[in-house]
């Protein structure tokens, strides 16, 4: 059989099987930290924090940045980065809103006016805009060999400018109920629809990454691009595809945000890249690529939002919140490195 030949591997196996706190924390550290935060805030605010409504509101808060973070997980797994997600989200939202309402001016924002493309059409358009943005950036990265950091930094600025152009600098607001349903609706008066969409997308992404050929290739390209190419993988196409995935998620997120706020804001998603990258990294995905997964990203998204919401409910001012979030990001990466140090 495969195993148990010679003494050394048997020993190694025993070492692997033995319970290791470090390995356990490495795997479930973010989850434990998340639960600890929930308990901590519940203890301080026993009447308002641990209510189902509050917890679901926090989850709803997490769901839009979480959708984008799922896409970002693919990108970071290949060793890339996308800084443009916030701008692309705003652009997709405003284009979809403009098309849905059949105009962009501030004046025709009265509820009920639609162009007739319907909610499906609006979602499709938001997704297409996101896909196109991701495609353009991915192509620039793979064909012109410009580092993703630079390309998407350019995208961060360019897509925002485009958003302001499309919306004439202002928001497009006041939609009918159909448009608002996905963002604002709840199942059974409690569970927000965005949360269900977020978790659904996470499950799909998890299945893709774990159980498909494509998912395997994403890890391979991030783990060792040279070896991936020598193994016959089309590395360029795989890298292009992950930017399209994050683009798609940003586009859909753009619609979801407009739907939930009842307004497609030109300044939507400013700074979103920070939250999204933080969620992925706190979730344990390595910025060097090749290691991590969507499960961690979901935890990471929830963690960032529990922290923000909890601190807000404790009346900690937002300036201080930013400091705390920043420190948590750094701590998460340090912690990750610490738990992985012994494994090699």
């Amino acid at each position: 059989m495969a195993g148990a030949k010679g003494a050394a591997p048997a020993e190694a196996a025993a070492r692997q099987n033995r319970f290791s706190l470090r390995a356990f924390m490495g795997r479930f550290g973010a989850l434990i930290f998340l639960l600890a935060l929930v308990i901590f805030f519940s203890a301080l605010k026993p009447n308002s924090f641990p209510t189902p409504l509050n917890l679901f509101n926090i989850a709803r808060q997490a769901s839009i940045s979480g959708l984008v973070a799922i896409g970002m997980t693919f990108v970071i797994l290949t060793g890339g980065i996308d800084l443009s997600v916030g701008s692309l989200l705003a652009l997709s939202g405003i284009v979809a809103a403009a098309v849905y309402k059949g105009g962009t001016g501030l004046l025709d924002t009265t509820a009920g006016e639609t162009s007739g493309v319907g909610v499906g059409g609006a979602i499709l358009i938001a997704c297409l805009v996101g896909l196109a943005g991701g495609f353009a950036q991915g192509l620039t990265i793979t064909k012109l060999k410009i580092p993703p950091f630079i390309v998407t930094l350019g995208g961060l600025s360019a897509f925002r400018g485009l958003t302001l152009l499309v919306g004439n600098g202002g928001p497009i607001s006041a939609f009918d109920d159909n448009f608002k349903f996905l963002g604002q609706g709840r199942i059974g008066e409690l569970v927000p629809i965005p949360v269900i969409i977020f978790l659904g997308a996470a499950v799909i992404a998890h299945v893709i990454l774990r159980y498909t050929q494509y998912g395997r290739y994403v890890y391979a390209v991030g783990g060792n691009p040279e070896a991936a190419r020598l193994s016959g993988l089309n590395t360029g196409l795989i890298i292009l595809s992950v930017y399209m995935i994050v683009g798609l998620m940003s586009g859909f997120g753009g619609y979801m945000l407009a739907s939930r706020l009842n307004s497609a804001e030109a300044i939507a998603g400013v700074g979103l890249e920070l939250t999204v990258i933080a969620s992925v990294v706190i979730g344990g995905t390595s910025l060097f690529g090749g290691e991590g997964g969507v499960f961690g990203t979901v935890i990471g998204s929830l963690l960032v939002n529990v922290l923000t919401a909890g601190l807000t409910q404790l009346n900690v001012i937002s300036y201080v919140q930013q400091i705390i979030i920043g420190l948590v990001i750094i701590f998460a990466v340090f912690f990750d490195r610490f738990t992985k140090a012994r494994r090699s």
């Binding site: 783990g223 060792n224 040279e226 070896a227 020598l230 090749g290 290691e291």
Partner: peptide, 9 residues
Amino acid sequence: KLQALFLAM
């Protein structure tokens, strides 16, 4: 190590 293996996989 550089050209063939995916060490973390």
